[in-house]
Design a protein around this nucleic acid. Structure first.
Length: 470
RNA sequence: GGCGGCGUAGCCAAGUGGUAAGGCAGAGGUCUGCAAAACCUCCAUUCAUCGGUUCAAGUCCGAUCGCCGCCUCCA
């Protein structure tokens, strides 16, 4: 018996909220467009990856098993250009920035994804796909390159709702610098060029076009039809539209059931993008000592389909909010660990309502902004009750268990564990408490100052002494 | 030009017909050896503007103004 909680997603193709019903009950198959590893990813890129992280964590919490692919694009025009600029190899550039990407993922506490295939490891699958398209007559060759003939694909434009008649042939610059019959066509396989990596193929040596890898790798890992495809909204056209054209022409079945797209992160009122030069990398924030959890919270604080403006003020305000949540979490955790008896019975405990509001918010197209609101209502409610001694350890245990569920999505409440350091700090705190009891405040303050030198701030509270890093 | 989206308090933001969640900042208070932190309370007669539908509209319809995105590499 499979038991999952209902969840709705806004699907770009239908333009509406739809109840999620996967191909296989209880299992969600997901493909996410991953990074092109030619540079450090900026936090606009990471808004998208944090959104994907929330998606997979929510599906897990809602009872689904998930099979999730996020590709690494390690062969591409920009990587080649970068390798030339740096006078090194494509592989070296790709390896460097792939490893940087995973470090940045840790900084933002992104969960590991089940499959992280590199494009260059699936050239064979791409060649197979092109072969099928050639056999079915969806292609033509020109100067050793293979192109996809959009005119052959009946439903072209159904994702982006683009009117093909408005995209006139020859009206635009061919930025690929390859020769196409029709401006709308796109390249599947780029014929070999001097000083560029290439692979052998029945239709000629060369390298894959941009869209090919996602169609090939998703089919390899997830099959011809899978449940959810994610990306940022600029990928709707042409990238995802072209994936549909490739995959549905080759496989003859529906490619993706739910298309989810994330809105941009803006700087002032403009999108953050490398070409505009207004980017901030995750790496830069980390080097500046900005807490990754504050950044994560900031990215979660607005619904993923709404534009979000970056500012340091917003990050600071997120930092303060995260602090409050962490304080609340540790207050509940100590109450749960204590043996306190309830002073008064509460007939109308709101936990059930809070929990159900939380699930409703996430089940409504991943509304993290609303879910956070629910969490802060809970915070105020139970802080008041604890001030009145109306929370015993049993109730606190239930609250803690819910907070753990909530944090299985947010992942901002529980601090990183630092065992060696924290046991030393705990020793010093015990000594200071002894000094305070003996009213030796000079010694107590000396210990506090020493901890302060180590970057540790103490807080004397009703539930005992807490510490945190600054 | 085509398509799509947005405009809610000082800032951020939830809210798709039933009488404005939440966060940050600000003001007051509680706790405390001191400090720091935390905690509590208060903080929008009003939702860009103007019309309309309705018993009822931030929410639906129309118009206007402003902003953004995609249509070309882009997360």
């Amino acid at each position: 018996m499979i038991h999952v909680k209902p969840i709705k997603f806004y699907d770009t193709k239908s333009g509406s909220l739809r109840l999620f019903e996967p191909v296989t009950p209880g299992v969600a198959t997901i493909y996410s467009c991953g990074p092109t590893v030619y540079n450090y990813a900026h936090i606009g890129n990471f808004r998208n990856f944090v959104f994907v992280d929330v998606l997979r964590r929510t599906l897990r919490l809602f009872g689904y098993n998930i099979k999730h692919v996020r590709n690494i694009t390690d062969i591409d025009d920009k990587i080649i250009r970068k390798a030339v600029e740096e006078n090194t190899t494509v592989q070296a550039i790709a390896a460097q920035f792939e490893s940087a990407f995973f470090q940045d993922c840790d900084y933002l506490r992104l969960q590991k994804v089940e499959y992280n295939p590199r494009a260059t490891e699936h050239i064979v699958d791409m060649i197979d796909l092109v072969k099928v398209l050639i056999e079915k007559g969806y292609t033509y060759e020109r100067d050793g390159s293979v192109y996809y003939k959009i005119g052959r694909f009946e439903n072209y434009g159904k994702l982006s709702h683009i009117d093909l008649s408005s995209v006139r042939s020859g009206a635009r610059v061919d930025s690929d610098e390859y020769l196409k019959e029709d401006a709308r066509d796109f390249v599947l396989w780029k014929g070999r060029r001097e000083h560029e990596p290439y692979w052998p193929a029945p239709f000629g040596e060369g390298r894959p076009g941009w869209h090919l890898e996602c169609s090939a790798m998703s089919r390899h890992y997830l099959g011809p039809t899978f449940d959810i495809h994610t990306g940022a909204e600029d990928l709707i056209f042409p990238h995802h539209e072209n994936e549909i054209a490739q995959s549905e022409a080759a496989n003859g079945v529906e490619y993706v059931r739910y298309w989810l797209h994330c809105a941009f992160l803006n700087m002032k009122d403009q999108k953050m993008s490398k070409s505009l030069g207004n980017i901030i990398t995750a790496r830069k924030l980390r080097e500046d000592g900005i807490d990754g959890l504050a950044v994560r919270y900031f990215l979660l604080s607005v619904h993923y389909r709404k534009p979000l403006a970056f500012s340091m003020e917003a990050i600071e305000s997120a930092r303060t909010a995260v602090n409050r949540l962490q304080t609340f979490y540790s207050r509940i955790a100590s109450a749960a660990a204590s043996q306190s008896k309830r002073q008064e019975q509460d007939s109308a405990d709101p936990l059930t309502r809070i929990r159900s509001d939380w699930y409703d918010a996430l089940g409504d197209d991943l509304n993290t902004a609303k879910a956070l609101g629910v969490l802060f209502e809970m915070l105020r409610e139970y802080n008041t009750r604890m001030d009145m001694d109306r929370v015993d350890s049993v109730l606190a245990g239930e609250l803690l268990s819910f907070l753990d569920e909530a944090d299985s999505i947010l992942d901002v409440m529980r601090p990183d564990s630092e065992d060696e350091l924290s046991s030393k700090i705990d020793d010093m705190i015990v000594k200071r408490q002894a000094a305070r009891l003996a009213r030796d405040f000079r010694e107590a303050d000396r210990i506090r100052d020493e901890l302060s030198q180590m970057g540790i701030v103490l807080e004397d509270t009703r539930e005992g002494v807490r510490w945190r890093k600054i």
